[in-house]
Design a binder for these strands. Structure first.
Length: 381
DNA sequence: AATACGGGGGG
DNA sequence: CCCCCAGTATT
């Protein structure tokens, strides 16, 4: 079987399979480029099942380019809460504002224009152009690289940028005339439903017959992928500062810096514990006044005077590149140092919130869990 | 080319 | 516990 025939067989059979087996996903019910765009950004590094509820809420709240362009950034971040990679949300809104102003609200349909938008890389550009506009552009993600590396037995490391370029050239050649949107989705659908990372279901695969990896018995070994570095550990000490007087029943939260990890999200005030405190990192921080002092000093630098009362809980959280091991300590405000009413002298990036008021602030999941547990423990008593 | 950037699901 | 996932921007 010659090369061209093998490619033609692949494209034809795969497309035919997709048209019979495609899942009914929310963003597949419309060709609105704006909705396709939102779904593709949400789907970056994120599973379909995770995205679905977020997608529904997002398009309901921001049904048009104009609606998203005119929304406050905090609202956008709040709807993205828990989805991760929050720069996606800020980049998306920034790019949508550009589309609103420069393109009169119409998502551009050329590769150059769409690729210039913030947060739109090679994959997302190809996905929008092919799915929304049916342009013959490749949309190569992890699924596509897995499928192609197996079917064509490609042993290049898919972590290398060079390999993605190679895959894009191949994927482009495979697109049958006039079917770019369906074909690209077919590739991803096969990767998600059949040609899975582990235990691919080859017996139901529409192109099993000519799959090179299958013929070589290598379907479980491909794609070749260099291992990622393990996340570096960090110890942290967080304060649950309970309000009194006017702020009774509330806790003090803090907004993170404009840039960097979890940018502009809200959190519990906390500080990193240097590894030199090695002996002082027990599962319970009860007997470690030196750690309390560290927290008190750190917050004092931000004009927040606190008195540690008692250990509350332990929390761990893993990002792609950092592992947080965090102790949470119940504190009260130090009387006389700061006014506890009217927010006087409270830095603007600090706020008092109760369970209800939290709805106006976006938190990363790790703090959401701690805060929910805290308010639950309060209401029980 | 390497690193920063979240979070959850599944074997 | 480890691996994986509908990636992009920065350095």
């Amino acid at each position: 079987m010659d090369k061209t025939h093998k490619q033609q067989y692949f494209s034809t059979e795969l497309l035919s399979w997709y048209l019979r087996h495609r899942r009914d996903l929310p963003w597949r019910r419309s060709k609105n480029p704006y909705y396709i765009w939102i779904s593709e950004v949400m789907l970056q590094q994120t599973r379909v099942d995770t995205v679905i509820p977020y997608f529904h809420r997002f398009v309901e709240r921001f049904p048009t380019v104009q609606a998203l362009a005119e929304a406050p950034e905090e609202d956008v971040l709040k709807l993205w809460e828990g989805l991760g990679y929050y720069s996606r949300a800020r980049n998306l809104q920034g790019a949508v504002r550009e589309v609103h102003e420069r393109y009169e609200g119409t998502v551009p349909n050329t590769k150059a224009e769409i690729s210039s938008l913030r947060g739109v890389g090679p994959y997302t550009a190809g996905a929008i152009l092919s799915i929304a506009y049916n342009k013959p552009e490749p949309a190569v993600d992890g699924n596509v690289m897995r499928v192609l590396s197996r079917y064509f037995l490609i042993e290049e490391d898919i972590m290398k940028p060079k390999t993605r370029i190679l895959m894009e050239k191949l994927a482009q050649k495979l697109i049958p005339e006039g079917t770019a949107g369906d074909f690209n989705q077919a590739l991803m659908e096969l990767g998600a439903m059949v040609c899975k990372p582990r235990s691919p279901i080859c017996l139901t695969c529409p192109v099993m017959e000519h799959c090179a990896a299958r013929e070589a018995g290598m379907e479980e070994e491909l794609p070749i992928k260099k291992k990622a570095k393990p996340p570096r550990p960090e110890w942290r000490m967080a304060a649950l500062i309970a309000g009194s007087g006017d702020h009774a029943g509330k806790v003090l939260i803090r907004q993170r810096p404009q840039e960097g990890l979890l940018a502009r999200m809200w959190e519990l005030p906390h500080t990193e514990v240097p590894f030199s405190y090695k002996e002082a990192q027990p599962s319970s921080a009860e007997a470690v006044p030196v750690l309390f002092d560290l927290l008190v000093e750190q917050l004092a630098e931000e004009t927040i005077g606190v008195v540690p009362e008692r250990w509350f809980m332990h929390a761990e959280h893993t990002f792609s590149h950092i592992h947080w091991d965090m102790q949470i300590v119940l504190c009260s405000m130090e009387p006389g140092v700061l006014p506890t009413d009217a927010g006087m002298l409270l830095p603007t990036h600090y706020q008092w919130v109760d369970s209800k008021a939290m709805e106006a602030y976006a938190f990363p999941n790790v703090f959401l869990k701690i805060l929910n547990q805290y308010f639950a423990s309060c209401s029980k008593k």
